[in-house]
Structures are given as C-alpha cells and as structure tokens.
C-alpha cells in the first residue's frame, strides 16, 4: 500500500513484485559461435557461387541451373509486371505531365533553331540559284567579247523612292572601274557609279541618271531605256512610225561609232516590252519595259570589266 506523499506508480515500482525477465531475442539464444558459423558458411557459399559463375559464365551445370531457375521465375516476373502495368502507366502519365512544360520549352528552342537553320538554307539555296544563273550567263554565247566578269555579293540595297542604287562587295582592287556594266544572271542591272577600294555603288536601270541605249531584237528599232515619270522603265525615243510589238526582247545597243563609245557592250538582255501606246500629242511611242533582272531582290551580280578593246 502506498504511503502518503508517494504516488501509486512509485509504490508499484518500490514493491517487491517479481518481474519477468526481458524477452530473449530469438537470435540471442543461439550461441555466438553458431551465428558466426552461419555467416561464414553463407559467405563461403556466395563466394563459391560467384567464383563458379565468374569462371564459366556461359556454360556448365550452374549456368544450366540458373537458366532453369530463371525460367521458373519468369511467370512470377510476368505476373508482377502485369500487376504493376496500370501503376506504371499512371506514373508515366504523371511524369509526362510534369515534364511537359520543360519539354515544351525545349521543343520551342529546337523549333527556333531549326527555323533559323531552314531560313539560312533557303537563303543559301536562293543565292545558289542566283550564282548558277550568273555562271550560265557568263559561260553563254550572249556574254560580250572583250569583257571578263567580276562576281560580287550585294551587301546593301538602297533601292527606294530616293535612291536607286545598291552596294557590292568588290571595288577597284578587283579591277572594277566607274561606269562598268553590271549584270545578273537574267540581264542588265545597271552600271557602277562609284568605286571604292573593296566596294562599289551600282546605279540601277531604274535610276534616272542611267539611260541605256537599246535595240529591239525583233524589229531592229533603236531607242533608250530609262525610268519614266511613274518610276517604271520605258523604251523611249522611238518614233511613231516604227513598229514595236508586245513581248519584244530589248538588248543593249552597244557602240555604233567608235568615236563615241557606249558604256555598255552590245547584246546584253535588258527586258521585254509591253504593248505600245500611241497618243496624238506625243512624238514618240510609249512602250513600257519589264526588266529581266529582278532589281528589287539581288544577292549577287557580275561587273563586266574590259579585258581588251572591244568593238
């Protein structure tokens, strides 16, 4: 019985009730020797299996036994896989959702990269086509005698309402001189109006200061090609009594009298004529010209440089 001032718990603790021994652990009842022997036997067993398996990994009784064991375990593995399949699918779904944002960002970067690569390739392809046409022209029969071509890349295009020029990446160091004719693979583009060491400025056909004497190949009529009041090219100075048809090809006239040499050699294609119009008040035919060369979109051009005195 508990005395005053002492708790019941203390009284119980102080009593002489005989408590049972702590529960002996099952392993503890075995001797340390037995425990160690079990460990040694198992480790030796594992090492023996390891040695045999390592020395003959593809043949032998142990290999056959392992194969048989694997075959026996296969149904359990398949069953476990099938049981886990819905959970695995759910995990994959959640994982894909979690990674969707990162993946989206990564894919956007890839799209941007491939788009820029695609643009670069398209640009290269366009430049390639331009160069091929230029090469065909330079090697063709219409290329003027006594001239050689200096190919140059267009580095800036100033064609606009106030300037009809472009700048090319070749200059006097490449043999280019002022007033040298400039062509693309399709036809005449203009002439060199200013030359620097490694660059030059080309005045386009659409520049009012670059008139070109021209010849209608179909009718033999002569005239001058220059920009009209609206900016479009016209075949001018053709009297009304001469005949010019639609879609006639115009080429450069070239030098007629050696005393007055022309800037352009003869036979360079310029463009096609449209249907001429005649008015009572005008002295000449009004013929518009569609140039062969695309003056607004040029990647590369060739400057014709004299190699010898031509006719």
């Amino acid at each position: 019985m508990a005395t005053r001032g002492r708790s019941a718990r203390a009284a119980v603790l102080a009593s002489s009730v005989q408590r049972s021994k702590p529960t002996p652990y099952p392993s503890k009842v075995r001797s340390a020797f037995l425990r160690r022997m079990v460990l040694v036997v198992l480790v030796l067993g594992a090492l023996t299996l390891l040695t045999i398996s390592f020395r003959s990994p593809t043949a032998g009784a142990l290999h056959d036994l392992q194969g048989a064991g694997s075959s026996a375990l296969r149904p359990f593995q398949i069953a476990a896989t099938r049981v886990a399949q819905p959970f695995r699918d759910a995990y994959d779904y959640l994982d894909s959702l979690a990674n969707a944002k990162t993946e989206n960002s990564k894919l956007r970067k890839e799209i941007a990269y491939f788009r820029s690569t695609q643009l670069l390739k398209s640009e290269k392809a366009r430049e390639y086509d331009s160069l091929v046409r230029l090469m065909h022209y330079e090697q063709g029969a219409t290329f003027p005698n006594g001239y050689s071509a200096v190919n140059a890349r267009v580095i800036s295009d100033s064609a606009g309402p106030f300037a009809q020029t472009l700048t090319i990446a070749a200059g006097s160091s490449s043999g280019i001189r002022e007033n040298a004719p400039v062509v693309s693979g399709d036809g005449l583009i203009g002439r060199v109006s200013n030359v620097f060491s490694d660059t030059a400025v080309v005045s386009l056909l659409s520049d009012p200061n670059s008139p070109v004497p021209a010849l209608d190949l179909h009718t033999g009529v002569r005239g001058v090609v220059h920009p009209g009041p609206g900016g479009a090219l016209i075949f001018d100075d053709v009297k009304k009594q001469y005949k010019v048809d639609a879609a006639d090809v115009l080429v450069t006239l070239g030098t007629i009298d050696p005393r007055y040499p022309d800037l352009y050699p003869s036979g360079i294609p310029i463009g096609k004529t449209s249907a001429p119009t005649v008015t009572d008040t005008a002295s000449f035919l009004q013929v518009q010209v569609q140039p062969f060369g695309n003056l607004g979109s040029l990647d590369s051009v060739a400057v014709l440089v004299k190699t010898s005195k031509h006719k």
Partner: peptide, 24 residues
C-alpha cells in the same frame, strides 16, 4: 544473413546476373 543469401540468389537468377554477387 540467410534471408539475404537466398534473396540475392533469386535476384541473380531472375536477372541472369553473376550468381552469388548480390547474395554476398
């Protein structure tokens, strides 16, 4: 120890790995 030995044996057998490695 006994459980580890046989569990390792099952793993090595099922995965066709080097027998005894996981057991050890």
């Amino acid at each position: 120890a006994v459980g580890g030995f046989f569990a390792g044996l099952i793993v090595d057998t099922a995965s066709l790995g080097t027998l005894g490695l996981t057991s050890l």
